[in-house]
Design a protein around this nucleic acid. Sequence first.
DNA 1: CCTCCACCGGAAAGCCGGGTCA
DNA 2: TGACCCGGCTTTCCGGTGGAGG
Length: 411
Amino acid sequence: MNIFERIVSSSRIFKNRDVLRHTYTPDRLPHRDEQIDTLATILAPALKYETPSNILIYGKTGTGKTATVRFVSRQLEYVSSKLDVRCTVHYINCELIDTQYRVFASIANALGKNIPMTGLPTDYVYCEMKKALDSEKRVVIVVLDEIDKLVKKGDEALYNLTRINSELENAKVSVIGISNDLKFKSYLDPRVISSLSEEEIVFPPYNAEQLKDILEQRAKLAFHEGVLDEDVIPFCSALAAQEHGDARKALDLLRVSGEIAERENSERVTREHVKKAVRKIESDQVSEAVRTLPTQSKVLLFGMIILTESGYAKFTTGEAYSIYRNLCRRIGLDVLTQRRVSDLISELDMLGIINSIVISKGRYGRTREIKVEMPIEDLKKVLLEDYRLENLLKYEKDLKSLISLDTFGDV
DNA sequence: CCTCCACCGGAAAGCCGGGTCA
DNA sequence: TGACCCGGCTTTCCGGTGGAGG
């Protein structure tokens, strides 16, 4: 027997692991009937070649926004093809497609144009998209997932998209925006807000009971019968419910628990496996984030670690910057300006690797107070995988003594 | 109550590597 | 080939500021 076949067929735990991934759209969405109904009611006019209202959908991560939209669009497209109505849904994830140019290009390309990734003037792309849309009588529903990411780079794309209907002869366009940032509207032009949010749907977080239903539904498809201990699903649900009812997290937890159990050659998935999964997920996220950091940020972070190890549990932007500058010089890396480093610090903060708050020390100025959040040993291990940072190791003691002398100066 | 520190963080502009087009 | 466009990263410039100490 082929070794892969043996490995694949020998899974005592999983029947179908993919069911637990968040890309999977189940054929039934528990506890989202209300939202599904509302969405379907709003979109129904599309089947009569009328423009559906634009919709804004709110809800935190893992509340089923994307799954619901996917689910409803699939049904809509199915019915429209049966009724022979030209009605399509175009899904755009604004985390990847995050500029006006790329949104237009993505729509145009979906309709058969061939617009390159970059290079053309944006208004040209806009015209091409318009032509493509208007080439026949149709309704196109554009779904902008993570719309807040797009808005951060200006609201022009939305402005143009919500106004486009007045320039079209045959086609109708309607926009569904999905956001998990409740206050993203404040970045928008009031005119865009009013046209974009003709309808609003809010997705509340799931509670532990509801998460349990979701997990049970998926577990039936994903696992072999009887491999889950009774308390595994309630435990996963409870943990995820604490974290603002995130179904995605609950599913990840269940999947990773299963994977750990499988790797341990266990016949059952137990509460202990879930506990291990919690730890694994956390540490994986951090190391992945650190690994993919730009070199400059890595050096900056390394400097922060040196500071922490030297007994500075908290430090300021200026202190971090001066260490960073020293490190850069030693390994021949360009030194960025303090302004830029300040932004890098904010990024590290957003990733949750460090914690920084702006405080005022009165006479002694206003600055960020920074502390490293994650276990420094783990961070160090990941950082040193980068060959450019390996060399820094030999300066470590040197710098520590420098800091303890409180000179903080240049070397 | 005022001052003044040591930064914050917005705006704008420059550079660079990706690309198109005629 | 040169003129031009785009996006990401970075620098330059600069107005703004909470609160300890005078």
